[in-house]
C-alpha cells in the first residue's frame, strides 16, 4: 500500500495511506501534478491535530467514496447525520470552524457538508440575539438599522 507524507503547519509529518487521503480533492490534484516518489506534501493551512481528526473521519468512511462524484455529493443537501458522524462532529465551536475551513481547503465535500450542516443545526430556529450568543459575535448594526428591521418585521 502506497504511503504519503503530509507536512502540517506546526511542522509535524504525518504518514498516511495514499488511498485514504484521496477523498481530498486538493491533495489528489497536487499528487497528479507532481511525479516524484516519496515527496512530502506541505499543508501550511492545516494543524496536525485537525489533520489527525480528519484522517479518523476518512478512515471510518473510506469504503463509501467509491462511486460518487463531487456533483452528486453536492446535491445531497438534506439527509440525516449518522450517529458516528454526529459523535465525531460533537466538538467546540472553534474546532468546528477549523474543520469547515480545512475541509474547504482540502476540498473534502462530504466533510464540509457534515460540518456546515452541524453549524446550521446549531442556529436553526433561533432568534438573532440567540444566534449572536451561540456564535459569540457582536451586534454591529446601528440602532437605526435595527429599528428599521424591527419595523419591517412587524
Amino acid at each position: 500500500m502506497a504511503v504519503i507524507k503530509l507536512l502540517t503547519s506546526d511542522n509535524v509529518i504525518i504518514e498516511t495511506e495514499m488511498d485514504l487521503i484521496m477523498c481530498s480533492g486538493t491533495i489528489k490534484g497536487m499528487l497528479e501534478s507532481c511525479s516524484g516518489d516519496d515527496e512530502i506534501v506541505p499543508l501550511p493551512k492545516v494543524r496536525s491535530a485537525i489533520l489527525t481528526k480528519i484522517l479518523q473521519w476518512a478512515q471510518f468512511h473510506r469504503y463509501e467514496f467509491a462511486d460518487t462524484t463531487a456533483e452528486e455529493e453536492a446535491e445531497n443537501v438534506c439527509g440525516v447525520i449518522s450517529p458516528w458522524d454526529s459523535d465525531f462532529i460533537n466538538v467546540d465551536m472553534s474546532t468546528l470552524v477549523e474543520l469547515i475551513e480545512v475541509a474547504n481547503f482540502l476540498n473534502i465535500q462530504r466533510l464540509l457538508q457534515l460540518a456546515c450542516k452541524t453549524a446550521a443545526n446549531m442556529i436553526a430556529g433561533k432568534t438573532s440575539e440567540d444566534m449572536r450568543k451561540i456564535l459569540n459575535i457582536k451586534n454591529d448594526l446601528t440602532f437605526s438599522e435595527e429599528a428599521v428591521m424591527r419595523k419591517e418585521s412587524k
Binding site: L112, Q113, A124
Partner: peptide
C-alpha cells in the same frame, strides 16, 4: 488560537446557509 465563525470565508458561510 480560538476561532470564530466570522473567521470563515464567504463561501464557507454560504455553505452553512444552504442548510437553513
Amino acid at each position: 488560537m480560538e476561532l470564530n465563525i466570522l473567521d470563515l470565508n464567504d463561501y464557507c458561510l454560504g455553505s452553512v446557509l444552504k442548510y437553513l
